[in-house]
Each structure stands twice: as C-alpha cells, then as structure tokens.
Design a protein around this nucleic acid. Structure first.
Lengths: 141, 141
DNA sequence: AACGAGAATGAAAATTAGTCGCATCAATAT
DNA sequence: ATATTGATGCGACTAATTTTCATTCTCGTT
C-alpha cells in the first residue's frame, strides 16, 4: 500500500526510503495545497509519523530537483511546496485569508516570452504572484 | 547640500535624521540599482559613513512603507531595494550574472487585471520576475 | 538659543528559516 | 545475506532580519 509512492520515487531516481514515502504520501493526500516544510512536518507528526525536520527540508529539496514538486515563495519568509502539476499555472494569493488561487494564462506566458526575446534573453523560469483581496474577503467587509 | 534629501524625507512624513539622509543619498546616487541592506551598509561604510546595520533595515522598511522605495525578492534569501520609480516596471534577472533588467508590459498588466477580475479578486500588488540567461551570458558560452 | 517629549539609533541578543557535519542506519545491487 | 552507498537523525550552525533597551537626536515650543 505504498507501492505507488515507491514506484514514483524510483522513477524519479530516488531511493524509496520511509521518510520520502511519507512525505510523498502526504503531498498526494493534500494535492492542490501549498505546504511549507514546517506544515509537512506538523501534519506528519499529527498522523503519528516521526520524521526529522531537517530530513523534510532535504526531501522536499530533492523532490524539487527531481521534478516531483515545485517550490514557491509567496511571502518573504517561507517556501511552500506543491506537487508538480501537469499543467503550468501561476498563483494569486489573498492578502487577508492567504487563500491560494491558481490561474492559467497562456497569453501572459506568451507575452513573457516576447519580452524576454525582445531583450535577447532566454527564459529559465519565472514567478508571477498576484496579491489580491479575494471575493470571500471582499464580501466579509 | 542635503536639503533635497531632508525635504523628501519630511514630505514622506519622516524625521530628517542623519542615517535616513545618508541612505536616501546613497539610493539617489545609485538610482536604477537594486541593493540589499548589506550592500547599502557596505557602500555607506566605504564612503566613511558609519550607520548601524539594524538602522539600515529599519530605514529601508520605513522608506518602503512611506512609498519611497520598493522591496523585491529575486532570490530566496535576500531582499533588495530600489528607489520607487515613476513608472511601474517588472524585472528579469539573469541566473548567471545576476544582472537585473527592467521591463514594462502594459499588456501583461492588463491581462493580470483581467485574470483577477475573472476570479472576483481585487489586485493589491504583484511580483513578476522572469529568470533568464541574458544575452551577454549566452554570448560568453 | 535652550528645553523637553517622543521618536530614532546603536549594540547586542533574539528570532526564524533553513543548512551542515557526522555518526548511525537502511535500501539496493551483488 | 551482505557490502556499499546513500539517507537519516541529531544538534550545532548560518544568514538575514528583528527586537530590546539604554542612550541620543530631532523638532516644536518656550
């Protein structure tokens, strides 16, 4: 019952160790969420799995390097991780409730490409975060 | 000869203290650059001005709150600051030489607005950083 | 021009997020 | 089954930034 995780890890070129399996399981169980290392640590402990925090940091970084997860920085202090989605998307973050809304905009992507090309640059990566007041929070006011 | 800085500070609602004048002077002298608190600290010391690093952090934060400067985070570890430009722009950062290239794209801004509106969100702020290999670095290869 | 209240600074300690060294341990190839 | 190699746990450590608190300024008022 951890065969899927084991296979995924091996496919990604990583040894199927218990900590890695647990972290991957947690990420799968919370697909679509954006979790910090601390949160992963807490959630695992809540479900009785004792993995060292340093290991969580290492594992998440390895997952990122292996292309299993993406790392984002919505605020200055903390990185959050999400399982790598099939389709690329960017994020809106509500400054009030911290809800994360994913959006896709091929038009923006294309314009980005154009901007880079116009400057003779090759895009390696990008971060595009729109900080908003979401509809829920606007309603509450 | 620090009248301009003094006036700017007062206009921004800040007392014209020596540390603030010095930091503002440095930013003005290096307009267009993106400097970390450490770099501001080093540059001031190089020119014989001894301001405490904690003060630099405080001053830069106040400047940001007062709308005098913008704070950016191009990498996970450090914030950089630039004098608030009259025209909004976003940034490309070369992953090799760390050069920062500013760009303006009203089209992207407009699409952003549309994305937010489509989700019922009001934009508060945004960060859009394109990580690239710049033309210089491509040439060097 | 001196005064005093309140704000700003310097110095050092604290905090926060993340990393590292190293002894031990476990996953896989043989 | 075992050796090899890489992974984990633990605690110490780092880097960036913030805070605390005693001292020193700035600026409106006398």
């Amino acid at each position: 019952m951890m065969q899927y995780e084991t296979d995924e890890l091996k496919k990604a070129g990583l040894k199927a160790t218990l900590p890695r399996i647990h972290v991957l399981q947690l990420l799968l169980a919370n697909e679509g969420e954006h979790m910090s290392a601390e949160v992963v640590y807490r959630k695992l402990h809540e479900s009785g799995v004792d993995v060292n925090l340093a290991t969580i940091y290492r594992v998440l970084t390895q997952f990122q390097e292996a292309g299993l997860v993406e790392r984002h920085q919505f605020d200055a202090t903390t990185s959050v991780f999400e399982l790598k989605p099939d389709d690329h998307h960017d994020h809106m973050v509500c400054v009030q409730c911290h809800q994360v809304i994913e959006y896709v905009s091929p038009e923006i992507e294309a314009l980005q490409e154009k901007v880079a090309k116009d400057h003779g640059c090759d895009i390696v990566d990008h971060t595009h975060v729109i900080y908003v007041t979401c509809s829920d929070c606007t309603a509450k006011k």
